[in-house]
Design a protein around this nucleic acid. Structure first.
Lengths: 156, 156
DNA sequence: ATTTGGGGTTCCCTGAGGGAACTCGAAGTG
DNA sequence: CACTTCGAGTTCCCTCAGGGAACCCCAAAT
């Protein structure tokens, strides 16, 4: 997809970017998340080139975030999120929250999220899975982990 | 940057992708986040082309997520995160969490995050800002908001 | 027998990414 | 004072990925 191979870097962010590191993949996942599961639907909604959509869908299936399944006797297929893919939607929700806050302007957010648990329109918030307190950029210290690269560049 | 203009879509995800919708920008932000603030440092760490790095840094400054500031009498500059940029790091943390879980393999995560509040190695977790309960892909209903597009495609 | 519709392929053109060399201005060095 | 060094980019060329439009295949429906 890209010229540089991000999947081989010793960095979980780079590896994730190997899956959704260009603009179309996240938008494809969003469409599928909200129930647009078919090729022509997604193509029309996004205005993406058919060629590129074919390639992206194939890539996402290959990486295990989507599953391609037949929905008819005819050769008709739809794409659905796997568990891996549903968890990847977390990234999209945080992107949406940031975009709502910083890029929406006068008109307000284009989309609202009603939280099933409380029934309210909610925003997503990042918390430490261990202690439950807020966890943002300045709240953490970054340390080398077991899978850190031995000596070449690019930590993180 | 890209051929398609994502910033004009009525979708906060697409708008966010207009800022960090290709693989280098998130990695540049990560480097700056962990304290690599200078051009040559970032270039060497990432292995990115100098041309592309120049363009990305300019783009990120223009979008207000980075600030370029002189750090010497000589023409020397460093890049630092603005508040808008620090909040964008939330997206990176979630990417890192997903990559740690789904892509790290045998070796384990390349990087660990120690949470200042509790001192433990923690993972980030998504919660509803309103009720505090978990908030993931299946926990929300997506509704049109005030800034929704009138009639053309692409909700979200 | 022909049309329709979903799900792609193919082809061509443009423009973004990669790489390496070059520039520029301000210190530092002999 | 000439020369090197260093940070921070520019410039140039080449290749390959993205965009657009047309085309293809298969299985109903008419």
């Amino acid at each position: 997809m890209q010229r540089t191979n991000f999947g081989d870097m010793a960095c979980s962010i780079a590896r994730t970017l190997d899956v959704i590191g260009e603009p179309w993949s996240p938008l494809v996942l969003r469409d599928i998340w909200v129930g647009m599961n078919r090729f022509d639907q997604i193509q029309a909604d996004l205005g993406i080139s058919r060629k590129v959509l074919t390639e992206r869908l194939g890539h996402l299936v290959e990486r295990g975030v989507l599953e391609r399944r037949a929905y008819d006797n005819r050769p008709r297929y739809e794409y659905v999120l796997t568990e891996k893919g549903r968890e990847l939607v977390d990234v999209l929700m945080v992107m949406a929250g940031w975009g709502d806050k910083w890029l929406a302007g006068e008109a307000g957010p284009p989309v609202l999220y009603r939280h099933h648990a409380c029934g309210e329109i909610g925003r997503v918030d990042l918390r430490c899975a261990h202690c439950g307190e807020p966890m943002h950029a300045d709240d953490v210290e970054v340390l080398a982990g077991p899978g850190a690269a031995p000596e070449p560049a690019s930590a993180g």
